[in-house]
Amino acid sequence: MEAEQAASPHKRIRIDFAQRRRLLAVLGGNHVNYCYQCGACVGDCPTTRFFPSFNPREIMLTALLGDLGTLLAPGSVIWKCSNCYNCYERCPQDVRPVEVIIALKNLAREEGTHPEEAQTIYETILKTGRSAPVIASLKRKRESMGLPPLPAIDMGELRAVLAPEDPPPGDSPPSSTAESES
């Protein structure tokens, strides 16, 4: 009897739907539901080629199961994605795996589990409006090359635009049922 059960092909799978809904609520995360696990994304993934334990099909499966704990843990493989968009190109189901991975990264930042390397450029942009630091000698260098000075960026305007979102007009207090459930 026991042996029969062990040989049964019907393995019980648990899906954490509350966790999966968290991902679906992030822009770009919702297409994961179209994934039928064909693996077209894997064959053309440069990261998989050089680092086989990064497997976009497995990442999509883990996301479908709602196992965000694995995907959002510090040191998660999602950060090894090359952002080449080959999977977006190949996917017959329009899952856009790279977009799902980006949505997962957005969640990882909310949880503070993103790697330090992902922080520097983001912070430089928040501070200066540009992704590369401007060193003092650049002004002279550009001048000597006959280039105009770098235009100024109104950081006050950038900060105002980047301040947290307001609730949509006519909306009663922000409803965040999706978040509070999980």
Binding site: V26, L27, G28, N83, I102, A103, K105, N106, R109, H114, A118, Q119, T120, I121, Y122, I125, G129, R130, S131, P148, P151, A152, I153, D154, E157, L158, E165
Partner: peptide, 20 residues
């Protein structure tokens, strides 16, 4: 040449931080 452009912003790290 136009005044006022910021970083595009960066499609890798800035997008990874907060897509909106």
């Amino acid at each position: 040449d136009l005044e006022g452009f910021s970083c595009c912003p960066d499609p890798i790290y800035f997008q990874a931080a907060d897509k909106i």
